[in-house]
């Protein structure tokens, strides 16, 4: 072993990598990021009750009020879409104080939940869409020109939403799958280490 690679020299080399460290700037950026995260979380929880009230109103007062389950399904969708990501976010709060193994296992669990979640959202959306289709169909065949235009506008808007959801679901699903694979590989590596060490 060369003397320059003695343990003392390696420690010195390592600690010589002490960078200049601007705490104020780091704190400022971290605070900004924290505020952004809080705002997004707050928006999620503000938006969900607003959508719920709107959908209940639609369920009671509009054409949906003829017994269609569509508004209630959409309410369920809104809350699933609000609560599952919130749970995924909040479940990480304690992860930082765990050991690496606990954290990797939690990451695997979260990635699996995320992959299940990604199927639920488009399914619920398409289900709601399928339920609304007969209503649109009735409006199309029995309605006047204005109602037919409204149907076309609704169909276009719904198609755009469905397309966006499919793109999002593919992106989100791939991201969760990648995380799952990376976390499993790291966990395997960690467990291999333990096996080798004993």
């Amino acid at each position: 072993m060369k003397s320059r690679d003695s343990w003392e020299n390696l420690m010195r080399d390592w600690q010589a990598g002490s960078p200049s460290f601007d705490i104020a700037a780091l704190r400022k950026r971290a605070d900004r990021k924290r505020r952004r995260m809080l705002i997004f979380t707050a928006l999620d929880f503000i938006a969900a009750p607003i959508f719920t009230v709107l959908l209940v109103w639609m369920g009671v007062h509009s054409r949906f009020g003829d017994g269609s389950p569509a508004p209630w399904l959409l309410i369920a969708l809104v809350w699933v879409a609000t609560l599952v990501p919130a749970w995924l976010r909040f479940s990480t709060l304690n992860a930082d104080t765990m050991g690496a193994v606990g954290m990797l296992r939690l990451t695997i669990k979260r990635a699996r939940t995320g992959m299940h979640f990604v199927w639920i959202v488009p399914l619920l959306l398409f289900f709601a869409y399928a339920i609304m289709t007969p209503m649109f169909s009735q409006m199309w065949t029995q309605g006047d020109a204005a109602q037919q235009r409204a149907v076309v506008r609704s169909m276009v808007a719904n198609s755009v939403v469905c397309g966006a959801v499919i793109i999002w679901a593919i992106w989100y699903g791939r991201r969760q799958w990648r995380k799952l694979r990376q976390a499993q590989a790291l966990l395997k590596q960690w467990e291999q280490d333990i096996g080798d060490d004993q």
Partner: peptide
């Protein structure tokens, strides 16, 4: 030790999230 643990955990999370 507490700070080091948090830092390493965040770094592992960073690796997991990498493309």
């Amino acid at each position: 030790s507490f700070v080091a643990r948090i830092a390493h955990n965040r770094c592992v999370n960073h690796i997991v999230a990498q493309k």
